[in-house]
Simulated assay, not measured.
Amino acid sequence: MTSDISFNGTMEIDLGAITAQLHHVTSPYSDDSVCILVPQERVLFIGDAVGVDYYKDCYLDKDKLRSLLTAIEGYDFDTCVVGHAEPVSKQKIVAVMHSLLER
């Protein structure tokens, strides 16, 4: 089964009073990671994008992590919603990613 909607790069969805901006990003977690920015709420949803690749023996590709970090630093947000954890600040997710790069 294929999806009803597909996109390359970015796509914006009008949700009424706010918009959701979908951005394909390079991520160590999967080849099809998407971050969702809701600029009016200053929230970025990244799900598991920072995670390891379970299909490659939990490998953490640091080049892909650096690319993701660059993308995340470029978004204007205050709160980041990550998978399987409480929301964190932009400063916190950036610090976590730097810490992973230093390992």
Rank of each mutant, 00 (worst) to 15 (best):
residue 80 C to F: 03
residue 99 S to M: 08
residue 103 R to F: 08
residue 67 S to K: 09
residue 73 E to Y: 00
residue 8 N to L: 06
residue 15 L to M: 15
residue 25 V to R: 09
residue 45 F to M: 12
residue 88 V to M: 13
residue 18 I to Q: 09
residue 3 S to H: 08
residue 63 D to E: 15
residue 101 L to Q: 07
residue 5 I to S: 02
residue 52 V to G: 00
residue 65 L to F: 12
residue 97 M to F: 04
residue 24 H to E: 15
residue 58 C to K: 14
residue 4 D to G: 02
residue 36 I to W: 01
residue 48 D to A: 14
residue 26 T to F: 04
residue 64 K to R: 14
residue 77 F to G: 00
residue 60 L to N: 01
residue 38 V to W: 05
residue 78 D to W: 01
residue 79 T to M: 12
residue 13 I to Y: 13
residue 52 V to F: 10
residue 85 A to N: 09
residue 58 C to I: 05
residue 92 K to Q: 13
residue 85 A to H: 11
residue 91 Q to K: 13
residue 62 K to W: 03
residue 15 L to P: 00
residue 19 T to C: 10
residue 10 T to K: 13
residue 58 C to H: 13
residue 16 G to K: 03
residue 7 F to E: 06
residue 74 G to M: 00
residue 31 D to M: 03
residue 60 L to K: 00
residue 11 M to N: 05
residue 99 S to L: 06
residue 33 S to P: 01
residue 48 D to T: 03
residue 82 V to D: 03
residue 49 A to R: 06
residue 67 S to C: 10
residue 98 H to Q: 13
residue 72 I to T: 08
residue 90 K to H: 07
residue 18 I to A: 11
residue 103 R to W: 11
residue 24 H to P: 02
residue 46 I to P: 00
residue 76 D to W: 09
residue 51 G to R: 04
residue 77 F to H: 12
residue 95 A to I: 07
residue 4 D to Y: 12
residue 64 K to A: 14
residue 4 D to W: 01
residue 79 T to G: 04
residue 12 E to H: 01
residue 60 L to A: 04
residue 92 K to I: 05
residue 6 S to W: 00
residue 45 F to H: 15
residue 23 H to A: 03
residue 48 D to F: 09
residue 44 L to S: 03
residue 11 M to V: 06
residue 23 H to G: 07
residue 89 S to L: 01
residue 56 K to W: 02
residue 63 D to L: 05
residue 16 G to D: 07
residue 46 I to G: 00
residue 42 R to H: 11
residue 37 L to C: 13
residue 21 Q to K: 14
residue 47 G to W: 12
residue 102 E to C: 07
residue 3 S to V: 02
residue 43 V to S: 10
residue 99 S to Q: 10
residue 44 L to N: 02
residue 9 G to H: 06
residue 80 C to V: 15
residue 17 A to G: 06
residue 83 G to M: 06
residue 18 I to D: 09
residue 95 A to W: 10
residue 3 S to K: 11
residue 60 L to Q: 13
residue 7 F to A: 08
residue 22 L to V: 07
residue 40 Q to K: 12
residue 62 K to E: 05
residue 18 I to N: 11
residue 40 Q to L: 09
residue 44 L to Q: 10
residue 42 R to P: 02
residue 2 T to E: 10
residue 91 Q to V: 13
residue 85 A to K: 07
residue 84 H to T: 07
residue 53 D to A: 08
residue 73 E to D: 13
residue 4 D to R: 09
residue 92 K to V: 12
residue 54 Y to Q: 08
residue 33 S to A: 15
residue 5 I to E: 03
residue 19 T to P: 02
residue 68 L to V: 07
residue 3 S to D: 09
residue 46 I to H: 00
residue 86 E to D: 05
residue 32 D to C: 07
residue 64 K to M: 09
residue 102 E to S: 14
residue 47 G to I: 12
residue 26 T to Y: 02
residue 78 D to K: 14
residue 22 L to R: 06
residue 20 A to L: 12
residue 99 S to D: 11
residue 66 R to W: 00
residue 14 D to S: 07
residue 53 D to T: 12
